[in-house]
Amino acid sequence: MSSGSVASLLSAGGAGTIFEYRVAAVVLAALLRGDRAKGLEVAVTEVRLQRRIANH
């Protein structure tokens, strides 16, 4: 088995989830301030996580 076909420990160990929560925290803070999150051109009106489970 080549080393290119094995997932890294970082990607398999929950780093994506930690990144998702950090981004959500920044966007939620913008929502509470009534401000724009960096990279968005409009004010944040809601924050949703893991919407695939709810068929979105």
Rank of each mutant, 00 (worst) to 15 (best):
V26D: 14
L40Y: 15
N55I: 07
V27N: 01
E46C: 12
V44Q: 12
G34F: 08
G14Y: 01
G39V: 02
I53G: 11
A7N: 07
V6Q: 13
A30E: 03
R48H: 10
L49Q: 11
L10N: 13
K38H: 08
V42W: 10
V23Q: 05
A30C: 07
I53P: 03
R33T: 04
L9Y: 12
G14V: 02
G16F: 03
R51K: 13
R51A: 10
S2G: 10
A7Y: 09
S3D: 07
G34Y: 09
A54Y: 12
L10E: 13
A37Q: 01
I18D: 00
A29H: 15
S11E: 13
H56Q: 09
V6E: 08
A12Q: 05
S3V: 05
G4V: 03
D35K: 14
L32K: 15
A25K: 09
R51N: 10
F19Y: 06
S2P: 12
V44F: 11
E20Y: 01
V44H: 11
N55T: 14
A24R: 08
A15R: 07
I18N: 02
G16K: 03
I53E: 14
L31T: 04
V23H: 01
R33D: 05
L40Q: 12
L9E: 14
R48Y: 11
K38I: 01
S11R: 11
V23R: 04
G39D: 09
G34H: 10
N55V: 10
S2Y: 04
A43V: 07
R22L: 01
A29L: 11
H56E: 14
G13I: 05
H56P: 03
A15E: 10
G39W: 07
G39P: 12
L9H: 11
